[in-house]
Simulated assay, not measured.
Amino acid sequence: MRRLSIVIILILLTILPQASTAYLSAGGPSAVSPPSFPDNEETRRLLEQTLSSAEIEKEITRITAEQAGLERKAEELRTQAAVKQTAIADRQERAGDIIRSYYTGERDGLLAAVLSARSISRVLALYDYYEIIIRRDHDILKEYEEDYKALKATLTAAERSSRELEELKSALQEQKIRVAALNEEIEGGIQASSDPESMSALLNEFTKYWENIGLHEVKIYFKALSSAMNRLPQFIQGREGALTRKGMTYNLTLKEEDLNEFLVSQNKLFKDFGFRFNDGSVIATGSSGGLTLTLTGHYSIQEEPVNGLMFHIDNVVFNGLELPESTRQDLEDEFDLGFYPGKIVSFLHATEVESKNGVLYVKLGISF
């Protein structure tokens, strides 16, 4: 009986199909290929518009959540202000009485009594009494001043929250108008296509791919790039001829082939990925599996909060499709691709940056 059971299990294992798996690797591109689409301008335009629509919808969701948070904060601040206003009323009245007493000379009698005392013990007793009253007056006025400042700060914060809330409402309305117009345009493009049903299905499929996989894939590269750029100063330190000195000025010369060699040494993801330093722009292109990525940007000098070369993303093309501006900005905010000369030598300070003919030139001054 036992042998029969084993035979049955073996037969089942043989005839049953194995489940296929698709997954995102921890450090590399996904095994899932993006949807294929006709390589024509109209389809490309619709796909880019669909990406923009999806990103605007995300922005609307974010703004809506932020608006709800601000509404709660504004209400809390108004409640706090009301409580503070009630609490301050009594101190305000007492402070007013004290100020009036000094203005009308009521406190002068106390000082006169101290000065007219005929014995040391009487002087000391009256002075102690006078000091207690004056100190108490001072404490009441100080408490009132602190309460007033706290109330004013709360009212200012509530007013600021209200302004921010109005700005958010305006931004939300603007985004809703944008996405409605964009969706209308997309729908028009779908209906104008030769096969509206297939086009609609393609756009839906691509949107899901982008939201679930595509954006994640792009972020894998950006994260790896950010991590590598953080270690670039050490590479430059050890690269002969990369940093030269002329008087009080240092010049950093980074060739694109040196940068690409460095990137590959940091992460094998960059084996098929390369940087080019063009006239005024930096272009990075690469591909892996079903993913192609082209990143165009430029460097500028930043002084605060720390001196460095900040990388600004001008354009990102994912699988032939230009990503929306909001996505580019989110990537720039999330991943720091900057370069900080102070990490090479603490007193170095970037003053000029230029890219041309395959080389990034950085002029550095000395700052203590």
Results as ranks from 00 to 15, higher is better:
M229I: 06
G96D: 07
E131G: 10
E167I: 14
E131T: 14
S121N: 07
S194K: 06
A181S: 00
P196I: 01
Y127L: 09
R163H: 13
E240I: 09
D139E: 12
I177G: 03
K169N: 11
S193R: 06
I220P: 00
A150W: 07
E166G: 14
M199D: 01
Y221F: 03
Y127E: 09
D108Y: 03
G109W: 12
M229R: 04
T154S: 14
Y129P: 10
I236T: 03
L110A: 13
E217P: 05
G238F: 07
I98E: 04
G109P: 01
I213D: 10
E187Q: 11
Q175F: 06
L151F: 07
E240K: 10
A157K: 13
I186T: 06
A180H: 04
A117R: 02
A157M: 12
S226Q: 15
D97E: 15
I186F: 05
A113F: 12
D128T: 10
Y144E: 04
A150H: 08
I140S: 00
R135L: 11
E106S: 01
A180V: 00
G214H: 06
S193M: 02
L115R: 08
R136S: 15
S227H: 10
E197I: 05
V123D: 05
A192S: 03
S162K: 13
S194H: 03
A158G: 13
L110E: 14
S119R: 01
R160S: 12
E159M: 12
L141R: 13
K219W: 03
G189P: 01
L155V: 15
I99E: 12
S194G: 04
G105K: 01
Y127C: 00
F235T: 05
Y144Q: 04
G109K: 11
I177T: 07
E146M: 10
Q191Y: 05
E167K: 15
Y102L: 09
A180D: 05
L182N: 01
R136K: 14
A224L: 02
L141M: 11
A150I: 08
V123H: 03
Y103V: 04
E187F: 00
I120P: 00
D195H: 00
R163M: 11
A180W: 02
Q234P: 04
A158E: 11
V114L: 13
I186K: 06
D195E: 02
L172V: 01
L203F: 06
Y127S: 10
Q191G: 03
L141P: 03
K208Y: 02
R122E: 08
I134L: 09
L203R: 03
E185G: 01
K149L: 08
S198R: 05
L165V: 10
I186Q: 00
T156N: 15
K176M: 05
I99K: 15
L155H: 11
R231L: 05
F222I: 00
E185K: 08
E164L: 12
I133E: 13
I186S: 02
G238Y: 06
S161Q: 12
G189N: 05
S101V: 02
T156Q: 15
L172E: 00
K149V: 07
I220H: 03
A95F: 07
